[in-house]
């Protein structure tokens, strides 16, 4: 009986006294080993972040700065002149805006289309339902990279090459989004939906007022991934966009980098400008991003 109590106590995460004891115990017995692990962890963490830190330091060096002394990249003088130069005298602001517009619209449309279809597949009865669901699942097995050549022809015949819509439309029908949302919508209690129907609610109202608000975590996860995916998409904009004014950042940056190979400073500033919005977003939404990956990764 005592032993049983002990075990259940140990399991109980809510017992603060036990937690304290456990961590003391760990510190006493495993302190040296733990120290080694933490040191390794810190070294690896520094190695991982270092190139990004270096990029940020290079971006605030005076234009044309060059050195063979690794340390002097990090020492003053600093200037924000490169940022001002690039933001006002190059297309980078335009590319940033393009990336933003495309990513935001792609995300909104993906969420809209997938949630509508997933709602019907989850909550409504209709003919060919199973067949349609399987048909959507097939899309999981069609890699965009392998259909990019015919996609180019399709976009060409629809007059979508070299346009925002051409960048957005091919990216918004996400079968993975359907699967994740459908399984999430399936978890909405049947009684809630049924009683809403009894009260004369239309399906659209149920979708909009009940199911969507209940599914915020799933929508957030899909939204974050669609946004990052679109922001960083390279192959399709690289092929389908011809005019410089319509470049997105990933396609624009290489032009930039190869035009200035003599000096690192301006290209690094361009790279920093492209990264800072996402770095900030990451620091703000880190928890949701991490949750989203474990959520979608396992399902998909």
């Amino acid at each position: 009986m005592d032993k049983h109590n002990l075990v259940s106590n140990r399991r109980g995460k809510s017992n603060p006294r036990f937690k304290k004891e456990k961590s003391n115990f760990l510190q006493k017995n495993r302190a040296p080993k733990m120290g080694v692990k933490i040191t390794i962890g810190l070294i690896v963490a520094i190695l991982f972040v270092f190139p990004i830190i270096w990029m940020l330091f290079v971006s605030i060096k005076p234009d044309g700065f060059a050195t063979t002394d690794p340390l002097s990249w990090f020492l003053p003088p600093y200037t924000f002149g490169n940022y001002i130069n690039l933001l006002f005298d190059s297309l980078i602001l335009r590319w940033l805006l393009n990336s933003l517009i495309v990513a935001v619209v792609t995300t909104i449309l993906t969420l809209l289309l997938t949630s509508l279809a997933a709602y019907a597949l989850s909550q409504m009865k209709f003919r060919f339902k199973y067949f349609i669901f399987i048909f959507f699942l097939l899309g999981l097995m069609i890699p965009g990279e392998a259909t990019i050549i015919p996609l180019y022809e399709v976009a060409k015949s629809l007059n979508l090459l070299d346009s925002y819509s051409g960048l957005i439309l091919p990216m918004i029908a996400s079968p993975l989004g359907i699967i994740i949302l459908k399984s999430f919508f399936d978890g909405v209690p049947k009684e809630v939906v049924e009683s809403a129907i009894m009260d004369g609610c239309s399906h659209f109202k149920i979708y909009y007022k009940i199911v969507l608000p209940l599914s915020k975590p799933a929508l957030a996860a899909i939204g974050i991934f669609t946004f990052i995916g679109s922001w960083n998409n390279f192959l399709w904009p690289f092929i389908s966009i011809l005019s410089e004014e319509l470049y997105t950042l990933p396609v624009g940056l290489p032009v930039f980098n190869s035009a200035y190979t003599q000096t690192y400073v301006l290209p690094m500033t361009a790279n920093a400008i492209a990264s800072i919005p996402l770095l900030i977003a990451f620091l703000l939404f880190e928890k949701q991003i991490v949750k989203g990956i474990s959520f979608t990764g396992i399902k998909g």
């Binding site: 963490a45 991982f48 950042l249 990264s275």
Partner: peptide, 13 residues
């Protein structure tokens, strides 16, 4: 965060 942060950078960067 440090292990994950490179993943959010664009391939060009």
């Amino acid at each position: 965060s440090s292990f994950f942060i490179p993943s959010i950078l664009s391939v060009s960067v």
